[in-house]
Deep mutational scan, measured.
Amino acid sequence: MGFKLLSKLLVYLTASIMAIASPLAFSVDSSGEYPTVSEIPVGEVRLYQIADGVWSHIATQSFDGAVYPSNGLIVRDGDELLLIDTAWGAKNTAALLAEIEKQIGLPVTRAVSTHFHDDRVGGVDVLRAAGVATYASPSTRRLAEVEGNEIPTHSLEGLSSSGDAVRFGPVELFYPGAAHSTDNLIVYVPSASVLYGGCAIYELSRTSAGNVADADLAEWPTSIERIQQHYPEAQFVIPGHGLPGGLDLLKHTTNVVKAHTNRSVVE
């Protein structure tokens, strides 16, 4: 069995187990497998329904001669939608809004960016022009300005110390501490036991640490421990890039980060 097929099978099995364990909360999309990078042309966006009122959005972007996937989250909030992270750029984010209108038909009224990198804030200006209120932590807003990236308009308070959590509509926002970046936030959907790890969490097929220019490698494993301790009931975990899975993604990420750190020390 090929690795790609095995990865998709694991996603399907995880979703099936969740649907059985929580039949009222989960209505997993039966329309197909989780979209992969090879299936999404740059400039297009796919939506994948995880649970009743919960979707991931998947886009792709060219970077350094390669094409990478990027995940975000959409959560229903009454007759409105909360968006977590842009679709990595203005063109993708405009396509995301169009796809949401086509498939869901509810307005996106608020959006949260989970850290300051372009795959999370690139497209904020498109959201703002569409009347979406954009939010991020003060740290993310400051770092985005320093980096020359787009800056969300509103500040999220109460997320300055490791372990801080605040309720934001249908989700809980959690600051686990520094990891992929010093400002990275985690998003949890309690009604569906869905954990969105953003770039602080890796997919299972990833074996290298990737972009760690703004990471705190020493603190990252401790931050992941905080996530595990705060959300032990999480059933569906979405990484910032690639295929979702279960809580095993947290341990896998820790292993990859520690291996990278150990290699760096040896070198």
Score class of each variant (00 low, 15 high):
residue 220 W to E: 01
residue 13 L to K: 10
residue 154 H to T: 14
residue 104 I to K: 00
residue 43 G to V: 04
residue 1 M to V: 04
residue 222 T to K: 10
residue 191 S to D: 06
residue 258 K to V: 10
residue 72 G to F: 03
residue 94 A to C: 13
residue 135 Y to V: 02
residue 200 A to G: 05
residue 109 T to A: 12
residue 223 S to W: 02
residue 218 A to G: 11
residue 230 H to W: 13
residue 263 R to A: 11
residue 79 D to R: 12
residue 108 V to D: 01
residue 253 T to C: 01
residue 53 G to H: 10
residue 203 E to G: 09
residue 208 S to P: 08
residue 140 T to Y: 04
residue 36 T to A: 07
residue 110 R to L: 11
residue 151 I to P: 05
residue 263 R to H: 07
residue 78 G to D: 11
residue 49 Q to E: 06
residue 155 S to E: 13
residue 4 K to F: 04
residue 98 A to S: 13
residue 3 F to Y: 05
residue 150 E to K: 05
residue 146 V to W: 13
residue 65 G to M: 14
residue 46 R to F: 15
residue 162 S to W: 13
residue 165 A to Q: 12
residue 206 R to E: 14
residue 261 T to D: 12
residue 90 A to G: 13
residue 17 I to R: 05
residue 109 T to L: 14
residue 153 T to L: 12
residue 257 V to S: 02
residue 76 R to F: 15
residue 165 A to E: 12
residue 130 A to H: 14
residue 91 K to S: 13
residue 234 A to Y: 04
residue 161 S to L: 12
residue 230 H to S: 08
residue 18 M to S: 06
residue 176 P to K: 01
residue 111 A to Y: 12
residue 204 L to S: 11
residue 168 F to H: 03
residue 147 E to A: 14
residue 262 N to C: 10
residue 132 V to P: 01
residue 104 I to M: 09
residue 51 A to L: 13
residue 39 E to S: 11
residue 187 V to E: 01
residue 255 N to Y: 15
residue 160 S to Y: 11
residue 26 F to S: 09
residue 158 G to A: 15
residue 137 S to D: 04
residue 161 S to H: 11
residue 159 L to C: 02
residue 80 E to D: 13
residue 188 Y to K: 01
residue 118 D to P: 09
residue 32 G to Q: 05
residue 43 G to T: 07
residue 18 M to N: 12
residue 239 P to V: 06
residue 80 E to H: 07
residue 238 I to W: 05
residue 56 S to N: 14
residue 241 H to R: 02
residue 52 D to L: 10
residue 155 S to Q: 06
residue 199 C to W: 02
residue 170 P to Y: 04
residue 72 G to M: 01
residue 10 L to Q: 12
residue 144 A to V: 14
residue 171 V to E: 02
residue 62 S to E: 13
residue 169 G to H: 04
residue 20 I to V: 10
residue 256 V to G: 01
residue 32 G to H: 05
residue 197 G to Y: 01
residue 73 L to A: 11
residue 69 P to Y: 14
residue 184 N to L: 01
residue 171 V to T: 08
residue 138 P to V: 13
residue 41 P to R: 09
residue 265 V to Q: 14
residue 250 L to S: 00
residue 175 Y to G: 00
residue 107 P to V: 12
residue 210 G to W: 03
residue 66 A to W: 14
residue 26 F to E: 11
residue 148 G to M: 10
residue 78 G to K: 06
residue 82 L to R: 02
residue 237 V to H: 01
residue 109 T to R: 13
residue 229 Q to R: 11
residue 257 V to T: 08
residue 178 A to T: 08
residue 28 V to G: 09
residue 173 L to D: 00
residue 99 E to C: 05
residue 185 L to P: 03
residue 254 T to A: 11
residue 197 G to F: 01
residue 75 V to I: 14
residue 77 D to Q: 07
residue 4 K to G: 04
residue 209 A to L: 14
residue 256 V to T: 14
residue 136 A to W: 03
residue 163 G to T: 11
residue 95 A to Q: 13
residue 211 N to V: 13
residue 162 S to V: 09
residue 200 A to F: 03
residue 184 N to T: 02
residue 119 D to N: 03
residue 249 L to V: 06
residue 114 T to S: 14
residue 114 T to Y: 00
residue 203 E to M: 00
residue 133 A to N: 05
residue 151 I to Y: 04
residue 188 Y to I: 05
residue 226 R to H: 14
residue 184 N to Q: 10
residue 56 S to A: 10
residue 21 A to S: 07
residue 71 N to W: 02
residue 183 D to L: 01
residue 99 E to V: 14
residue 154 H to F: 15
residue 231 Y to A: 03
residue 247 L to G: 07
residue 167 R to W: 05
residue 174 F to P: 02
residue 35 P to W: 11
residue 34 Y to G: 11
residue 244 P to D: 02
residue 172 E to H: 06
residue 27 S to P: 07
residue 88 W to K: 00
residue 261 T to G: 11
residue 61 Q to R: 09
residue 99 E to Q: 09
residue 256 V to E: 04
residue 218 A to D: 13
residue 170 P to V: 09
residue 94 A to E: 12
residue 246 G to C: 04
residue 132 V to N: 04
residue 9 L to Q: 09
residue 167 R to C: 05
residue 258 K to R: 14
residue 30 S to C: 10
residue 216 D to K: 13
residue 125 D to C: 03
residue 247 L to I: 05
residue 243 L to T: 06
residue 56 S to C: 12
residue 116 F to E: 03
residue 219 E to V: 08
residue 51 A to Q: 15
residue 106 L to V: 14
residue 21 A to I: 08
residue 227 I to C: 01
residue 139 S to E: 08
residue 152 P to S: 10
residue 175 Y to L: 05
residue 177 G to K: 01
residue 208 S to M: 12
residue 211 N to C: 04
residue 249 L to M: 07
residue 81 L to V: 12
residue 165 A to L: 14
residue 232 P to H: 06
residue 53 G to F: 10
residue 23 P to N: 09
residue 237 V to F: 05
residue 266 V to Y: 05
residue 233 E to V: 13
residue 28 V to L: 08
residue 248 D to M: 07
residue 172 E to F: 06
residue 37 V to L: 09
residue 111 A to Q: 12
residue 80 E to Q: 11
residue 149 N to F: 14
residue 89 G to S: 12
residue 170 P to L: 07
residue 169 G to Q: 03
residue 124 V to P: 03
residue 217 L to Y: 09
residue 210 G to A: 13
residue 148 G to D: 15
residue 135 Y to C: 03
residue 110 R to T: 10
residue 12 Y to K: 13
residue 114 T to H: 00
residue 125 D to I: 07
residue 49 Q to V: 12
residue 263 R to Q: 15
residue 140 T to Q: 02
residue 172 E to S: 10
residue 73 L to Y: 01
residue 14 T to S: 11
residue 39 E to V: 08
residue 158 G to P: 14
residue 238 I to N: 02
residue 34 Y to Q: 11
residue 129 A to Q: 14
residue 215 A to M: 05
residue 46 R to H: 15
residue 137 S to T: 07
residue 220 W to V: 00
residue 34 Y to A: 13
residue 218 A to R: 10
residue 131 G to A: 12
residue 85 D to W: 00
residue 173 L to I: 15
residue 132 V to F: 02
residue 18 M to C: 05
residue 1 M to S: 03
residue 168 F to Y: 09
residue 190 P to L: 05
residue 38 S to K: 14
residue 235 Q to Y: 06
residue 54 V to G: 02
residue 245 G to T: 02
residue 127 L to P: 03
residue 164 D to A: 10
residue 16 S to E: 08
residue 219 E to C: 04
residue 246 G to T: 08
residue 211 N to W: 13
residue 184 N to W: 01
residue 264 S to R: 12
residue 106 L to C: 06
residue 27 S to E: 09
residue 183 D to S: 01
residue 176 P to C: 01
residue 165 A to T: 13
residue 171 V to Q: 01
residue 226 R to K: 06
residue 124 V to R: 03
residue 148 G to K: 11
residue 175 Y to K: 02
residue 135 Y to F: 06
residue 244 P to Y: 11
residue 117 H to N: 00
residue 251 K to A: 08
residue 66 A to C: 13
residue 119 D to P: 00
residue 38 S to N: 08
residue 83 L to S: 02
residue 1 M to E: 04
residue 244 P to H: 07
residue 202 Y to D: 04
residue 130 A to M: 15
residue 180 H to F: 00
residue 239 P to F: 00
residue 114 T to C: 00
residue 26 F to M: 07
residue 27 S to Q: 12
residue 41 P to G: 10
residue 106 L to S: 14
residue 132 V to W: 03
residue 257 V to D: 00
residue 69 P to A: 13
residue 192 A to P: 10
residue 172 E to W: 10
residue 50 I to P: 04
residue 111 A to T: 12
residue 207 T to G: 11
residue 36 T to E: 12
residue 143 L to E: 10
residue 245 G to C: 02
residue 219 E to H: 09
residue 105 G to F: 15
residue 206 R to I: 10
residue 111 A to F: 08
residue 99 E to F: 15
residue 222 T to A: 12
residue 247 L to N: 05
residue 215 A to E: 05
residue 96 L to Q: 03
residue 31 S to L: 10
residue 50 I to K: 03
residue 47 L to T: 10
residue 118 D to F: 06
residue 7 S to Y: 15
residue 27 S to G: 09
residue 148 G to P: 05
residue 124 V to M: 14
residue 33 E to P: 11
residue 93 T to S: 11
residue 195 L to C: 00
residue 144 A to Q: 03
residue 175 Y to P: 02
residue 261 T to L: 15
residue 216 D to Q: 09
residue 56 S to P: 05
residue 135 Y to M: 04
residue 163 G to H: 09
residue 44 E to I: 07
residue 66 A to H: 07
residue 187 V to C: 02
residue 140 T to I: 03
residue 63 F to C: 05
residue 158 G to Y: 06
residue 174 F to A: 03
residue 73 L to W: 01
residue 5 L to R: 09
